[in-house]
Nucleic acid binder design. Structure first.
Length: 813
RNA sequence: GCCGGGGUGGCGGAAUCGGCAGACGCGCGGGUCUCAAAAACCCGUGGGCUUCGGCCCGUGAGGGUUCGAUCCCCUCUCCCGGCACCA
């Protein structure tokens, strides 16, 4: 009998598949197969692959192989998200160049992927740190710049005083630098932004079409975009005449305004404080908040604030209310100033109590008397003390008030988004340089396309200190203005790595193209992506940015669709003992040692069989003794046994029950794989192999079952399936290029079914009846059941529920 | 606090147009083989009771609808995830 020896067969097939070019996507125009783009979120090359990669890619690979067997021309590419801070950190620590560290890791991961049997089209491999890739990242930046979608402005950012660098929000943990633990400060710097806010409404609207996205991802993106409807209203400052617009979702409470609040960063604060003779009191608060890290702002005291000494005139009734400056109003949202209605907003209420400001009731619950408010009332009601709107029902009155404001010329209906423009500048070395030259005469000038890429300099001191590494380089930034030839300097910032990853899926469609980032015809041929697989940690940033890029490129006529990923699947995390795996916790389980010891097929089966793909896997709970043979490995051994035995007696008659199970299994497994239910698919294959064993032991044949089993095993255990297909079953060509088995309904149909006989809803008997048994026949069988009679005893049967041919329930009085 | 998802054997998990709860696997127990052990293979495995025919209980807790509820409804509870001064 043929032994199952993964150490022997896996490297062998890996070589043969590579030599045969089995997984290359076909670009032959005569290829009649429909196309399918199976995309996995590309990895970041920090060391070797971890368990999370193993799970995500095992699932993605199962889908790609399944689709190929279903007759699709599959594009299943791989690449690396290879720019980023960790490469620099590692380089600083080990004194090697970020490039060396990055490419070494990419090679390692590529070898591991190949060893795992991933069906990638390696000819399309890319890395975002490759000059031939980032050249086009820069080119896309310039396209956005041309359209006004990339612009520069001053913005507050997180700054680590020890590392002397700007940090992304996600690099700030509890107000401190994640690397050195130093509390971060706030700096105002001029930065590049992408104008994603122009697309806020479309990003929101188009999600209605993303029916195959996980609901929670949709929810997270909706929350992130944060659309609010309301009104904009312009107040006038009594003492200076300044006009200050505010956004409110509750214009129906305009008559309840008793004060007015500015964010500390609001450009009018100093002027107004000075006009009110209060700058001395205001300045310390402004300074304090300015030095508070952005990530700490949420902990600021809601009641803190200082009076400005000036008054705002309420346009609806001419009332003058005092102005304050307070940290609870954010410059980043709305207009950076608010009308305060303590009667109907809890934050305003708290502030009013603290500062002795009046609280006015202007929305009253229907049918109730006027009351002294003990807290803000935010529910429905009737407008009172509201001039022309007295008696109007709120919130129905909101659009009426907005329309009235518009007619009066003091504002009107407005929509506000929480989404802010995407800050892409990074004062870091290991990223794509921003292709802009700053000319004293011409300002921001695009680097001409024929001068791309703007290459990163090699000889750089990328250790932290003072300025960004590119700014510190003695000569790199010096250049001539492309417009006038005068001395000018390059922009010394690099782009956020999320820019790199916002278009990599387009590049896969036109690999190695030297004239453009991609060809529209290539992209339109393969995209939108058939299935996108990756972690939920990218639910907002990467997916939102990629959607934005796609829409912007669509508007430029560069692609023919507006959503890149109509179908999205998130795999769960692989954790250990309820916590994420990490080196500091010492609980990291790596996939490659498992692959070396038991084979890639076993590693893939362990992880796919452990539970639902979307759910987390706690390795501590699913893994047994690491030195003990995994159950799935033993199962593969048994599969080799049954397939070998079936092949050795091709003329033996296959039992009808086995044929039926085979066809039922084909139907069920096909459905399971389509729904990412790999765990149940594998369990059904186990059932089939168990039944084959029983049939063979009884002397029957199992040829059809063996063939189907091997084919259905192929997406999950590609090496073992290939060995069985070609060597044991002796088929020509790869199992992975064979057509997915089809089930025949006639064969799958049951001849008999188990009739459940219940008495008063409790199961009392199970009887085999013909599958076509009608109600009367079933009832007869049920009445005849000895067990049922005993359960009924001397009671009278009052009701008979019949669901032929599955169930009869005899109900006694 | 708000929104979303979930609670099923010793463990991972099956089963939801309301109709056999616990598929499949791990673990565990017993057996075959062996001098012995491991491996492999076979049998058993929710709890309790049993006259060995079966019976009772059981899907976080309580209630409801129904002939019948893991599934639908209400209340509660715990866990996980996301958001959280968003005007």
């Amino acid at each position: 009998m043929r032994r199952y020896d993964p150490a022997d067969i896996e490297p062998k097939w890996q070589r043969i598949w590579e030599a045969e070019g089995l997984h290359r996507a076909s670009e032959d125009p005569a290829d009649p197969r429909p196309r399918f783009y199976a995309l996995d979120m590309f990895p970041y090359p920090s060391g070797d692959l971890h368990m999370g990669h193993a799970e995500a890619f095992s699932g993605g690979d199962a889908v790609a192989r399944f689709k190929a067997m279903q007759g699709y021309n599959v594009l299943h590419p791989i690449g690396w998200d290879a720019f980023g801070l960790p490469a620099e950190n590692a380089a600083i620590k080990r004194e090697i160049h970020p490039r060396e560290w990055t490419y070494a890791n990419i090679e390692q991961q590529a070898r591991s992927f190949a060893r795992m049997g991933m069906s990638f089209d390696w000819t399309r491999r890319l890395a975002t740190c490759d000059p031939e890739y980032y050249r086009w990242t820069q080119w896309l930046f310039l396209k956005l710049f041309e359209r006004g979608l990339a612009y520069r402005k001053s913005s507050p950012v997180n700054w680590c005083p020890k590392d002397q660098t700007v940090l992304a929000n996600e690099q700030v943990i509890a107000g401190a630098c994640e690397r050195c633990g130093t509390p971060v400060e706030r700096r105002d710097l001029t930065q590049w932004f992408f104008k994603i806010t122009d697309y806020a409404q479309r990003l929101l609207d188009d999600m209605d079409g993303l029916v195959d996205w996980p609901a929670r991802v949709i929810t997270m993106q909706r929350n992130w975009i944060g659309r609010s409807e309301g009104a904009e209203v312009t107040f006038t400052i009594e003492e200076t005449g300044d006009e200050v617009p505010i956004f409110t979702t509750r214009p129906d409470t305009l008559w309840g305004v008793t004060f007015f609040v500015f964010a500390v960063e609001h450009p009018l604060v100093r002027k107004l404080a000075e006009a009110g003779g209060r700058w001395e009191e205001v300045e310390p608060l402004v300074g304090k908040v300015r030095n508070t890290p952005l990530t700490h702002r949420e902990e600021a005291d809601t009641k803190e604030g200082v009076v400005l000494g000036v008054h705002a005139v309420n346009p609806v009734n001419g009332e003058k209310v005092p102005c304050y400056v307070a940290p609870y109003v954010l410059m980043e949202y709305g207009t950076g100033a608010i009308m305060a209605v303590p009667g109907h907003d809890q934050r305003d209420f708290g502030f009013a109590r603290q500062h002795g400001l009046p609280v006015r009731e202007v929305i009253r619950p229907e049918g109730e008397p006027a009351s002294e408010l003990a807290e803000a009332y935010v529910g429905e009601g009737v407008m009172v003390s509201s001039g022309p709107f007295d008696g109007e029902r709120s919130p129905a009155s909101i659009p009426k008030v907005a329309a009235w404001l518009a007619a009066e010329g003091r504002g009107g209906a407005a929509v506000s988004f929480r989404l802010r423009d995407w800050l892409i500048s990074r004062q870091r070395y290991w990223g794509a340089p921003i292709p802009i030259v700053h000319c004293p005469a011409h300002g921001e000038v695009a680097v001409p396309e024929d001068q791309l890429p703007v290459l990163l300099p090699e000889d750089v001191d990328f250790r932290p200190g003072g300025e960004s590494p590119l700014a510190r380089h003695p000569s790199w930034k010096r250049t001539a203005c492309p417009d006038c030839g005068a001395d000018a300097v390059r922009d010394t910032d690099t782009m956020d790595t999320f820019v790199d990853s916002s278009w990599y899926f387009f590049r896969y469609c036109s690999p190695g193209l030297t004239e453009a980032a991609f060809r529209r015809e290539d992209v339109d041929r393969w995209m939108p992506v058939g299935q996108y697989t990756g972690g939920v940690e990218h639910a907002i940033l990467h997916l939102l940015y990629s959607r934005f890029f796609t829409k912007a490129l669509y508007d430029m006529g560069m692609v023919g669709f507006t959503e890149p990923f109509p179908k999205l699947m998130n795999q769960g995390q692989v954790i250990y003992g309820g916590a994420s795996m990490s080196k500091s916790k010492g609980n990291v389980v790596e996939p490659m040692p498992l692959v070396e010891r038991w084979g890639a097929d076993s590693m893939r089966l362990i992880i796919l069989f452990a539970g639902p793909f979307e759910g987390d896997i706690d390795w501590k709970l699913i893994a047994g003794d690491p030195d003990r043979r995994p159950g799935v490995n033993a199962w593969l051994g048994r599969v080799f046994g049954v397939v070998d035995e079936a092949a050795s007696r091709p003329h033996a008659e296959e039992p009808e029950a086995l044929r039926r199970l085979t066809h039922r299994t084909i139907r069920a497994v096909t459905e399971d794989v389509e729904r990412f239910r790999f765990n149940t698919a594998i369990s059904k294959l186990m059932v089939l192999s168990n039944e084959m064993r029983a049939g063979l032991d009884a002397g029957g044949g199992a040829g059809e079952a063996a063939s189907a089993l091997v084919q259905m095993l192929a997406p999950f255990a590609p090496y073992a399936a290939e060995e069985l297909w070609r060597e044991v079953l002796g088929r020509e060509g790869s199992v992975h290029a064979s057509p997915w088995p089809s089930f025949e309904p006639d064969v799958a149909a049951e001849e008999t079914v188990t009739l459940i006989v219940q008495v008063d809803g409790k199961v009392r008997d199970k009887v085999e009846v013909p599958a076509g048994a009608d109600g009367a026949a079933c009832l007869e069988v049920a009445r005849a059941s000895e067990n049922a009679r005993r359960a009924i005893g001397d009671r009278e049967v009052a009701n008979e529920i019949v669901r032929a041919p599955r169930l009869v329930n005899l109900v006694t009085r």
